[in-house]
Write a protein that binds this DNA or RNA. Structure first.
Lengths: 266, 266
DNA sequence: CGCTCGTTTGACTGGTGTCAAGCGCAGTGG
DNA sequence: CCACTGCGCTTGACACCAGTCAAACGAGCG
């Protein structure tokens, strides 16, 4: 019997996730940030100044520390690890999850470009869940201490930070409602709608189709279902003409129909 | 057919929850705060100064605005309502919930004395869920604007605030794991353990028994189960000698046994 | 080529939901 | 004081959604 990769990497001792990370040279990193389509979202916008750059004088020098890359299916951080950086995903997808001792796994949230990997890291130095790259992921790490010092007294940054929490909490509530009181069909339809909505808001989605790097097993780990049942629901959605699926790809054919099933009207 | 009270009150137009609230006279409110056993927890401790009072000079004058009372089973706030106060529960239990259009209801968290009712209220002026009193509830409201002004530049308060978020998020993760990947027995055992732990940390629990104002139907609304099934699980726990239940009362007889079922070892 | 992983499908099982009825208690009104 | 009523708890019979187990297929990859 072989050990699946997610378990393999989560069993590493704390602090060892760094070994897969490729650090990007500082000069290249700066130019990557300058062109980053995500720089206008979340805290990046506040930290780097929204109108592209130029007026670097008004804002303190950007406090990027490092840009890193992690290959697909490796853990970015393991639960219990310490960390001194707050990271933002620039490219790629990842997910937060916890692994129960018997092997069951619950995904807490899916992270897309522009998301902050560990929102509470600024105040809480140990991570309470693991994070795994779904595709290859490139991310930027702000130094915790610098960011924290800046947060005190900077109303705009504080506001941005708080709104991260609020949005994230709202996402968690949505998932709680799904898991607690909705059927498999509803959960999956809602997941699709949620992701399409978020991708659109980040300007990542091209027409109603998008690359969908979540294997069905992981869709199950989000929605609390088994891979087999997820497959059946996908099949019935396909038969109903709601979606079209392919290899790491998904297209919404009937948005209204999906919303009728999975909309959260509250 | 009669309308259950939770629906009745949640159907009121926004802004009407105030009508059940009894405002407590300001002079009485001040003395209630001075003696409040919860003043050392959460943000109250930071705002009012932890060592009882006396050195009122160091801290700005307390910014209590009002103390209010709400009778059991009435909504404290309805989803969508606006609010200009951040409230802390001084006495009694309450819960946050959302009501789906078809009547299904999901409880998001249970609030006990010392908990902040609407943690994000400071930055988000509309409430995204409803809050209902489980017992009679007395709570204190801080003015949002004052609190916010104080937050900028006050590192200690900021820290306290952030830790509210972190603790709350941790609770939500626990519930997500329960709902997504654990059985009915596990969920209910975990709920009991979670509540006993929180009550202990707040110094409210007398020996291993405590008043348990959650009717089984609401235990179901937290754990995503029906009242009938909750009843069966309670019955089996009783038969196994794990707990003892009575009218609005619960006693843990076998903590280790409960932990074996519902512990979250992650 | 042979391995593994993800998808797909089928048969069967089982945990929870649903429906229904009875009981006891507390509040309410006569 | 006593009926009446509604609510919460309890139990049983039954149904169904989703889990489990198993097998086959295709794709990627060394």
């Amino acid at each position: 019997m072989t050990i699946p990769p997610e378990i393999k990497s989560s069993e590493l001792a704390a602090g060892q996730t760094d070994e897969y990370c490729t650090k990007i040279r500082n000069d290249r990193a700066a130019s990557l940030c300058a062109d980053c389509p995500m720089r206008n979202f979340n805290i990046c916008g506040v930290l780097l100044g929204k109108p592209l750059p130029e007026d670097d004088s008004s804002r303190p020098k950007p406090i990027w520390q490092v840009q890193k890359k992690v290959p697909a299916r490796r853990n970015i951080k393991n639960a219990g690890e310490q960390a001194d950086r707050v990271s933002v995903i620039c490219e790629g997808w990842a997910f937060r999850f916890v692994q129960l001792p018997d092997g069951r796994r619950q995904i807490l949230s899916i992270l897309i470009p522009g998301d902050v990997v560990t929102t509470t890291r600024l105040f809480d130095d140990t991570v309470r869940f693991s994070i795994q790259a779904l595709t290859e992921v490139r991310f930027c790490g702000y130094a915790r201490s610098t960011l924290r010092a800046q947060l005190i007294g900077d109303a705009e940054l504080l506001e941005a930070w708080a709104s991260l929490f609020i949005v994230e909490r709202h996402e968690h509530f949505g998932l709680l409602i799904d898991l607690g009181s909705r059927s498999a069909d509803e959960r999956i339809a809602h997941l699709i709608l949620d992701l399409t909505g978020r991708l659109e808001r980040r300007g990542i989605m091209v027409d109603p189709s998008f690359t969908f790097p979540l294997p069905q097993k992981l869709v199950g780990a989000v929605t609390g279902l088994t891979a087999e049942h997820v497959n059946r629901v996908f099949g019935s959605f396909r038969k109903m003409g709601l979606i079209e699926t392919g290899k790491r790809y998904l297209r919404v054919l009937d948005l209204a129909g999906l919303q009728r099933i999975g909309g959260l009207p509250c």
